[in-house]
Each structure stands twice: as structure tokens, then as C-alpha cells.
């Protein structure tokens, strides 16, 4: 379907109002966009995390599709069971509907505790899309560091203090780890790039086999920014090349967005309270430098991998709002 906002606005919202995610939550916008992008009926499994506790608090649910939560580290394993049931019942002629399957997890449930279950489900080739809404820490339980937390960020388990500049190690490159599973489709995106995000959801759901989206979903509580700035921070992450928008389709890496001018990473760091200490202590300039060097190095490596630069799948344009970047 055409990705024009006018057309999309006619669709039923499958992610309902009345959920209890924080005001200005980047993950909430992400969930709305994912659900608006779906066309066939979907079954969703959600890992324990913000999106879980705030959207399914008994006796209320924000979900209008079939939806299951079983635990934290097993969103992918749970959906693989649902998908196996579908394959079995379909083969027996007990179900004829076309149904798609989506597993959702935060970065805690995906980078860390759920990595094994994700890897297993990808390797087994289930027909499902895994979405990681990555807000770069365990936000639901109060901002503890995760494998996705960037170097230098102050979290409640990697706090900056007189003897520490916050998290001492770099985030892991989960998207590349997933790519090493040689699945047919995976991508990185953000909800600020709504057309990119929704196009990627549609593309992933159209593919047979496991697919994966790593979506940077700002958390203003954990990032210590104003709640109105969630989309702005996601956009800055792409414009500084801290969070490049790219996809890997059948092993081919494609860049989906090249900033007109690659901004220094400090533009993304400075508005965020979790990096404040890096700028108040001159000693920590070296941490900022390391972050910039790493972003530059990774960006250069990505450009090498991306032989083709392509636009996301759906490129119909809408009457020109300045922020409708890709």
C-alpha cells in the first residue's frame, strides 16, 4: 500500500490509545507505526519491558491483534512456537488465513538476555519479523545499562561518578550479529524516519523467513532529554551517523539515508543528560573523542559494505513537510 500519511490515516489503529507508556515515549510512536504498516492480520509476542507492562495491564490491552507475552528472554522462542502451530495447522487444512508473526523486544530483551532465543529462532528459519525497540538501556526497571548502552553513558548500573565516566565499554553491534545469521532481510531505522520504518516493516513482512529490525527508539527519561524531543534525538542519531539507516537484503548491504552534512556526534550527545558529565570534566574529552572516532570508523566500514545506495522500498512523496526526510 502507498505510504502516504493521508492514506495511512484512514487505517484502523491496531495499537490503541490508553496505553501507559510515558508521555513522549519513542517506543510508543514506534509501535503505532509498526501496526499502521501491517496489512495482513498479525500475531505479536512481546518480551517483558516497557512496551509489555504499559500496553497489557490486566484487564486492559492496547492491542487489537492477537498478542502474547510469556517472559523476558524468549519473545523469539515464543513466536516460533506460535508460528510452528500455524505451519502445522495450515498444513493440516485447519487454518486457511494468511497470518504474519512479529516478535517484539527492547534492547535488554534482545541484545542481552534474549540473544540466544533470538539467534535460535533466526537459525531455525521461522517466518517472522523480530523488532528490537532499542532505547539503549533497561528503561522499564529504571535505566540500568545494557549491551546497547553507548560508551560513556551514565546509567543506574554504570553511573558517572568521581571515579567513573559512566559505561566503560562500547555497545555491541547487534545488527551485524543478526546479519551474520544470513537471514533474508534486516535493517536499522528510527521512528523519526517514519517512511523508512514503515516501508521496512512492510518489506520484512513480505519476505519468507526470519527478518529483523533494530529501531532506535529514544527514551527521554533514560536519555535525560525533554519529552518533546524524542523524534529530534532519533533524527540526530541518524544525522551524526551514530545510528545509520541501512538494510541488508539477501546479503546485500544498502544505505537508506546519507545525511546532507555528517554532523559531529557531540550534537547528539550534548542535549542528553546521560552524557552531561563528559562535557563538564575536561578529562573526559577523550571519551567523546573515542566515541567520534568509533562512529567515523563504523560509518566508513558501513559505506564500504553498502555497494548500493537505495531509497527505502516505498518512495511516494507527500506534500513536502520539511521533516519528512526519507
Amino acid at each position: 500500500m502507498a505510504l502516504s500519511l493521508k492514506e495511512l490515516s484512514k487505517k484502523e489503529e491496531l495499537f490503541s490509545s490508553g496505553h501507559r507508556l510515558c508521555a513522549g515515549c519513542g517506543a510508543a510512536t514506534t509501535m503505532r507505526q509498526i501496526m499502521l504498516a501491517t496489512e495482513d492480520p498479525v500475531v505479536i509476542s512481546t518480551a517483558t519491558g516497557c512496551v509489555y507492562v504499559a500496553t497489557a495491564t490486566y484487564p486492559y490491552t492496547a492491542w487489537k491483534c492477537n498478542w502474547i507475552h510469556s517472559a523476558f528472554e524468549n519473545s523469539a522462542a515464543t513466536i516460533s512456537g506460535v508460528e510452528a502451530a500455524y505451519q502445522s495447522l495450515k498444513r493440516q487444512g485447519k487454518i486457511d488465513k494468511k497470518i504474519k508473526f512479529i516478535a517484539i523486544g527492547g534492547d535488554g530483551g534482545t541484545y542481552d538476555i534474549g540473544l540466544q532465543s533470538l539467534s535460535g529462532a533466526l537459525e531455525r528459519g521461522h517466518n517472522f519479523l523480530y523488532v528490537c525497540y532499542n532505547n539503549e538501556a533497561y528503561m522499564n526497571t529504571g535505566i540500568q545499562r545494557s549491551g546497547a548502552t553507548p560508551l560513556g553513558a551514565s546509567t543506574t548500573t554504570s553511573p558517572a561518578g568521581s571515579a567513573s565516566y559512566g559505561k566503560k565499554v562500547f555497545r555491541k553491534d547487534l545488527t551485524a550479529i543478526v546479519a551474520a545469521h544470513n537471514i533474508p532481510y534486516l535493517a536499522q531505522t528510527t521512528p523519526a524516519h517514519w517512511r523508512d520504518l514503515m516501508g521496512k516493516v512492510q518489506k520484512a513482512l513480505a519476505v519468507e523467513g526470519p527478518t529483523f529490525l533494530n529501531i532506535l527508539a529514544p527514551c527521554h527519561r533514560g536519555w535525560r532529554v525533554e519529552m518533546k524531543d524524542s523524534m529530534k534525538l532519533a533524527r540526530l542519531a541518524a544525522d551524526t551517523c551514530y545510528w545509520p539507516l541501512y538494510e541488508v537484503e539477501n546479503g546485500q548491504w544498502k544505505l537508506n539515508y546519507t545525511p546532507k552534512e555528517k554532523k559531529p556526534v557531540t550534537e547528539w550527545l550534548k542535549p542528553q543528560g546521560r552524557f552531561k558529565h563528559l562535557f563538564s570534566n575536561p578529562e573526559y574529552q577523550k571519551v567523546v573523542d573515542r566515541l567520534q572516532e568509533t562512529v567515523d570508523k563504523e560509518w566508513a566500514a558501513l559505506l564500504k559494505k553498502c555497494v548500493v545506495e537505495s531509497k527505502p522500498p516505498e518512495t511516494e512523496t507527500k506534500t513536502a513537510p520539511a521533516r519528512d526526510v526519507c
Partner: peptide, 28 residues
């Protein structure tokens, strides 16, 4: 048998997959 056999990567995942399958209406 007509069974869909899911050769999971751990028992945690076997029970998780069974929960998903059973909740989807499959005899598991």
C-alpha cells in the same frame, strides 16, 4: 506424524515455544 517439530536451542526455548504453540491452539 503431521507434527511440526521445533528443534529449539535450549529447554528454556522449548517450553517458551510450547507455550506459544499451545496458546495458538496446537496440541503440544
Amino acid at each position: 506424524v503431521k507434527t511440526e517439530y521445533v528443534a529449539v536451542e535450549s529447554e528454556h526455548s522449548s517450553m517458551s515455544a510450547c507455550i506459544g504453540a499451545s496458546a495458538a491452539g496446537a496440541r503440544t
